[in-house]
Design a protein around this nucleic acid. Structure first.
Lengths: 215, 215
DNA sequence: TTTTTCAAAGTGGTCTGACCACTCAATGAA
DNA sequence: TTCATTGAGTGGTCAGACCACTTTGAAAAA
């Protein structure tokens, strides 16, 4: 049908999503070939390709010439590259991404700190011990752990994506200083002091962004 | 050339960026036609289209049949839509959607209530007056107003999507009761009492969900 | 002259069929 | 058994053909 009002390739993106769900294709799994999709969906192969190329640029699928097309695990860098070359100039957008990511992080901290069963999790004290033995912790790992423990997978995935878009290399920081921020946060979480935890988090973030500007 | 190692359509994405920069095409400006691009870059039109479709799905360009292709305002985070359809697919937990939406709502309330220039906005008192004259306000309208005033378009967009996915009809509620919740929230915002505002919000949400279960 | 009509040019949307480059597995020879 | 070959399947690209839509400007009508 060449007369649809909705763009065909967007339709295909949708169909593809349904197909993936119906056939239970997991990350890493193989998607039907372009020719097969074209026939099954009754569209031209070039149209199928337009949809697939879009998804590839988003990092949702991966194609290997001679082999096929595969579902990926949402962590391709292509998208980050493209977006950064096109968008990263726009400071307002970058700011939004950071702020939005921090929204998810803060709320997760509030939940963990405010929920006895969560703030008593052995992982916090074990992390704290690591720090006291001068083993450093990567910021992302800690935050991810916090996000995970809130058991909101949607929020976790959004956070993951935002992290990809907005990531900047953190450089020129003293590990010792950072450890102090982390310890403060962990202590507040364990003792269930929500506002204290948020305050520590804010301090940490501020400290990080100051570090960024020095570069 | 059919023998490049780097994928042609990615090459084109890159070329396109350079072209846009060189010709100083601003958001809203027109990009050369597909046929012209194909000739200038010495590639097939379908290959050009694959690149353009990708950028369109990312929300970087916009196409109008019969007119042409245009550079968009990057702030249109259209990619969120696509990503969300893929993400929400396996994270069907309606609960997650609600909780995540509420994360954005709560944070927005915190920001508005805690920022003097925002909580003094005339819109709040005017809404409050409407309520006192017994004109009812739709929940979504109020929340949207709050989100907008935080000036984080990305968060706003996410909220909008979450709202769409998780929408349920609110029924069987007494308008009078709801007005009371809203008034409480608005008053707390205006007076800058963050925790009070959050508390009101929580009460409102709880009340709403109880109403839902009755259905 | 002014207004209306409408056909042509230009643009994106889609399809078809044809090659090319690559991978993999089955086939067959050593 | 081992190794080389070959053919089927898959993505990558191209050229050309229509279709649907918008704009525009010249011709026709007022």
């Amino acid at each position: 049908m060449t007369k649809q009002t909705t763009k065909m390739y967007l339709q295909i993106v949708r169909e593809l999503r349904l197909l993936i769900e119906k056939e239970n294709i997991r990350p890493g799994g193989k998607i039907p070939s372009e020719r097969e999709l074209a026939e099954r969906l009754q569209v031209g192969r070039s149209t199928v390709r337009e949809a697939l190329r879009s998804l590839e640029l988003l990092g949702l699928i991966e194609t290997k010439r001679g082999e096929g097309t595969f579902l990926t695990d949402f962590r391709n860098h292509k998208l980050v590259e493209v977006l950064s070359t096109f968008i990263l100039q726009d400071t307002k957008t970058v700011g939004d991404i950071h702020v939005t990511r921090e929204i998810h992080e803060k709320e997760a901290i509030r939940i963990v700190a405010g929920t006895p069963t969560l703030n008593q999790l052995p992982v916090w004290s074990s992390l704290l011990m690591q720090l006291q033995e001068d083993e450093s912790i990567v910021r992302e790992d800690l935050i991810r752990e916090i996000l995970i423990s809130t058991n909101n997978r949607l929020s976790l995935k959004m956070w993951f994506l935002l992290k990809q878009y907005g990531d900047e290399p953190f450089q020129g920081h003293s590990e010792k200083d950072e450890n102090q921020h982390i310890q403060q946060l962990l202590n507040a979480i364990i003792s269930g002091e929500i506002e204290h935890a948020i305050h520590s988090y804010r301090g940490w973030i501020t400290w990080l962004s100051q570090g960024r500007e020095i570069i």
